[in-house]
C-alpha cells in the first residue's frame, strides 16, 4: 500500500466521521442529502459482499466494516432519529436516474459476468455519481454550512488520492483497473466546481454560498 492509497482511505474515513459528528453534535441533518447517503450505503453494501469470502488484510476488513457501519448509522440518523430536521423538500434528486444506468452499465461492462463481480462493478459506477443528490441540494439552497463543505472536500479528495495511487501502481506494478480508473476520474471531475469554491471561499474563512 502506498502513501496515496493510505491518505485516500484516511480522507474517506475523515469525511464519514465529520458527517456523523456534525449530525450528532448539532442534532440536525439540515443541508445533508439523505438520498446521497442511501446511495453510499448501497455502494458499500454491494462492494463489500466479499467481506467474508475474500480476505485481504485485517486493515481492509476493519475499514470495510467501519465504512458500512458508519454509512448505515448516517442513514438512520437522517431518516430516523433526526428526521424532523431533514430537508426533504430540497432533497429531490431522482436517484433512480443514477441507480438504473449504473445497474445496466454494470451488466454490460464488467471484468467477469458473475454476481459478485457485477455487484462490485455496480458499486464502482454508482459511487462515481452518488454525490450528485448532495451537490444538487447545495445548488438548490445556494449554500452549505462550513462543516458540510469540509465533509465534501474530504470526500472528494479521497478519490483524487486514489487516482494518484493508481498512477503509482501502474508505474510500479503495471497494475491498472480501467473500470475503477475511469469511474474515479468521473467521480473526481464532479467535485471540481466544488473544490474551486472550497479553496476560494471556505479556506479564506467565508461560508460557501453560490452566486444567485
Amino acid at each position: 500500500m502506498n502513501v496515496f492509497r493510505f491518505l485516500g482511505d484516511l480522507s474517506h474515513l475523515v469525511a464519514i466521521v465529520i458527517l456523523l459528528l456534525k449530525i450528532w453534535k448539532t442534532r440536525s441533518c439540515s443541508g445533508i442529502s439523505g438520498r446521497s447517503q442511501i446511495l453510499f450505503a448501497i455502494v458499500f453494501t454491494t462492494r463489500y459482499l466479499d467481506l467474508f469470502s475474500n480476505f485481504i488484510s485485517v486493515y481492509n476488513t476493519s475499514m470495510k466494516i467501519v465504512y458500512i457501519t458508519c454509512s448505515y448509522a448516517t442513514v438512520y440518523l437522517i431518516y430516523g432519529k433526526f428526521k424532523a430536521t431533514y430537508d426533504f423538500n430540497h432533497d429531490t434528486f431522482r436517484i433512480e436516474f443514477l441507480l438504473v444506468p449504473s445497474a445496466i452499465l454494470a451488466f454490460l461492462v464488467n471484468h467477469d459476468f458473475s454476481p459478485l463481480e457485477i455487484l462490485w462493478t455496480f458499486s464502482i459506477y454508482l459511487e462515481s455519481v452518488a454525490i450528485l443528490p448532495q451537490l444538487f441540494l447545495v445548488s438548490k439552497t445556494g449554500e452549505a454550512e462550513t462543516i458540510t463543505s469540509h465533509y465534501l472536500f474530504a470526500l472528494g479528495s479521497y478519490r483524487l488520492l486514489y487516482l494518484l495511487n493508481w498512477l503509482w501502481r501502474y508505474f510500479s506494478q503495471g497494475f491498472y483497473d480501467l473500470i475503477a480508473l475511469l469511474s474515479g476520474i468521473l467521480q473526481t471531475v464532479l467535485y471540481c466546481d466544488f473544490f474551486y469554491l472550497y479553496i476560494s471561499k471556505v479556506l479564506k474563512g467565508k461560508k460557501l454560498s453560490l452566486p444567485a
Binding site: 467477469d112 459476468f113 495511487n165 475503477a180
Partner: peptide, 10 residues
C-alpha cells in the same frame, strides 16, 4: 476464461 480481478482496495 473468467479472469479473476483481485479487489484489494476499498
Amino acid at each position: 476464461h473468467a479472469l479473476h480481478i483481485p479487489h484489494d482496495e476499498l
